[in-house]
Design a protein around this nucleic acid. Sequence first.
DNA 1: TGCTTATATAAGTATATTGTTATAAGTTAA
DNA 2: TTAACTTATAACAATATACTTATATAAGCA
Lengths: 115, 115
Amino acid sequence: MNVKSTVEIETAANILKLLGDKTRLTMMKLLQVNECCVCEFVEIFKISQPAISQHLRKLRDGGLVQETRRGQWIHYSINKESEHYDFVQSLLDYLPGQEKYLEELAAQGLRIICD
Amino acid sequence: MNVKSTVEIETAANILKLLGDKTRLTMMKLLQVNECCVCEFVEIFKISQPAISQHLRKLRDGGLVQETRRGQWIHYSINKESEHYDFVQSLLDYLPGQEKYLEELAAQGLRIICD
DNA sequence: TGCTTATATAAGTATATTGTTATAAGTTAA
DNA sequence: TTAACTTATAACAATATACTTATATAAGCA
């Protein structure tokens, strides 16, 4: 195992605050293994589209995710270039997979509409 | 390496929210290697004694730390029996040691007053 | 162009969080 | 018992957070 990098306390606290919300944490766990379209998050979570957008903005402002526009859709993915990628991944590795949400979408035929 | 236990998303979000505060995160990092008296935290952080007490209560209610009374002093330590001990430790391992605070106390002769 | 769809931003509100000061409760010792 | 000391709790205020609805922006298409 490589030497573990350290994260300054204040920086770490900010990251943990971002992840200390059920919606954002679930988003991050989904993004750990799948790129997701905003419209998918809107289907998955029981909150409004602006609320989704605001959560994603926080994650993006914190450098944890990045966005890619594909036509009229915007896909979010983990920012692998983040200075704190290892730290975040090690946290996410403790969480159970949240693929159930994607499977539900697939069952409803909603998974592919923005691919 | 042993199989990693998983922490339910909601539980993890609650723990991360607890740790997503600079004061509490620093407390936890200190407790990772030292038992600390409330009075030491009061010296270390630039907030009132009740504010310290309220942070410690949150950590205790979350099961992350435990208290031991020693005469009129109360010492806090990491709760090694916590179901989420590994998860929390793995986070703390990414943070730089905060011994500087204890060294400052020692330099002022305040480290031993409640031992 | 104008219409539809996807996403972001603005503004407002309810609640949560983090601090404060005042006070209570528990321990020690005169 | 009374006084001094340590810590916790209560009450409150300021600020932050996470929603909501309304609206703006951007892309795709008839």
